[in-house]
């Protein structure tokens, strides 16, 4: 699409939606949100960018092949599941590391993996469809 307005606005959209997606990812810990919806929102930013500037430009801006992002995300999620072995628990048992008021968990790592998996998979798909037409 050849629209100056959209092309300029899309740069802000990418930033805005990426930030919002991270917010959603972290918010999902205790409230509605999470890795899946975060990944979708993040991908939406790049989809707008691809519509405005073409998928090649979006690929260049992204730098990393979305398929690599997706498979790394799956790998991260798998590692989060495997980490339960360190604590002698069953596969995918959520384990927590609590230091004062900071609570770290393998659950959030899993969610981050989901975020990347969804983000990468959606963009792979959209780029493929864009380029096939």
């Amino acid at each position: 699409m050849n629209s100056l307005l959209l092309s300029v606005a899309s740069r802000f959209f990418v930033t805005l939606l990426l930030m919002f997606s991270v917010f959603m990812l972290l918010r999902g810990h205790n409230l509605p949100g999470g890795g899946f919806i975060g990944g979708l929102i993040g991908a939406a930013g790049f989809i707008v960018y691809a519509i405005a500037n073409g998928s090649q430009a979006a690929r260049r801006t992204l730098r990393i092949d979305p398929r690599v992002i997706a498979s790394s995300g799956v790998g991260i999620a798998l590692l989060a599941g495997l980490s339960a072995a360190l604590f002698g628990k069953a596969f995918f048992t959520g384990t927590w590391l609590i230091a004062g008021s900071i609570k770290l968990s393998t659950v959030i790592i899993f969610d981050i993996g989901v975020y990347f998996a969804v983000f990468g998979a959606i963009l792979t798909l959209v780029f493929a469809l864009e380029e096939a037409v």
Binding site: A121, L125, A128, L129, A132, V133
Partner: peptide, 13 residues
């Protein structure tokens, strides 16, 4: 959704 997207790409091909 994933399957449908795949089927859509397949239809295109």
């Amino acid at each position: 959704f994933g399957l449908f997207a795949f089927a859509l790409v397949l239809a295109l091909r």
